[in-house]
Amino acid sequence: MSHTAHIRSHRKPRSRTASTIAMRAGVAGGILSTVAVAGASAAANAAEPVTQTLELPTLTADLSAQVAQSAEATQLAAANYQLQAERDAAAAAAAKEAAKDLAAAKKAEARKKAAEEARQAAAERAARDSQRTTLAAAADTGSGSVSTSTSTSASTATGSAAAVIDFVRAQVGDAYVSGGTGPNSWDCSGLVQAAFRQVGIDLPRVSQDQSTAGTQVSLDNLQPGDILYWGGAGSAYHVAVYVGGGMFVGAQNPSTGVVEKPLSYDPPSGAVRVL
């Protein structure tokens, strides 16, 4: 324990003097007055509206130039878009017009081709009718030699000619089919080619070439086994085999098939001999 623990303090108790108290009271009063004045000022400020003024930036010459350039660029872009749209529309219209012109040209070409084919068919029919008339007149007057010479030849056909004739006659009644080469359906050149193949003769496949495959012979001097053709030599559209006696065998058309008919039924234009 400290050696001073039980020693009384010699300090005298403080006594509040009147001046001290008065000073503290004055300070407190000043504070309260300040608070009151501040409150009144805040209330007055709260009652009055506050107005704030904003200053806009001044439009300078540089800013005006930038605005003008932006507007000009916008107008230029709009003009370019309009021009491109007009060009696209013009291109589409031109393409449509070209398509119409092409279609019209194709139609005109098709009509021209059809007319040419019709004229060619008419010319071929006229030639066949003329030949038929000539043969009929010759038969009536007895001046023609087709029936006379062929009837004699029919009875004397032998060898390869007989084999060819036997083959084509065996196919009478078969169907006609374009491109047919047998054994039960034929077209005209397919039948002729197959008949001559029986005797070791390899003929061309189509009638145009078969019409020039041998030696040209007169229709007044036909022999059994001769190849008859319709149309021009080298441009024939049909062929058949002369079997003698004024008769021929051929694959005529889809309606008749393979038939044996007299020459007057469909007079040929010419003939070639390969045997």
Rank of each mutant, 00 (worst) to 15 (best):
V259G: 06
T17E: 14
K112T: 12
D266Y: 07
L63I: 11
L191F: 00
A138R: 12
R87W: 03
M23H: 12
R205E: 08
R87Y: 03
P13G: 11
A103Y: 01
H238K: 10
A85Q: 13
A110N: 11
P254V: 00
Y229K: 05
A122V: 08
K261S: 14
R119I: 04
T74R: 10
G180C: 09
S145G: 12
G173H: 01
A77W: 00
Q120I: 11
R87P: 00
Q131M: 12
A38H: 03
A175I: 00
V239K: 08
A73F: 02
W186C: 07
Q52Y: 11
A36D: 08
P268T: 03
D174T: 06
H3N: 13
G173P: 01
V164D: 10
E260S: 08
E124H: 07
R169K: 15
P262T: 13
I7N: 04
P49T: 10
V67D: 09
V164T: 03
A103I: 03
Q131Y: 05
K12F: 05
T20H: 11
A118V: 05
S70Q: 14
Y265F: 13
S64W: 01
K113E: 15
L83K: 13
F196I: 07
G225F: 00
T152V: 14
V272K: 08
L32S: 07
L191Q: 08
N45T: 10
S15L: 09
G232F: 00
A194T: 12
G180E: 09
D226G: 03
S255H: 09
D209K: 09
T58G: 06
A85C: 05
L59R: 13
A38P: 05
V35A: 14
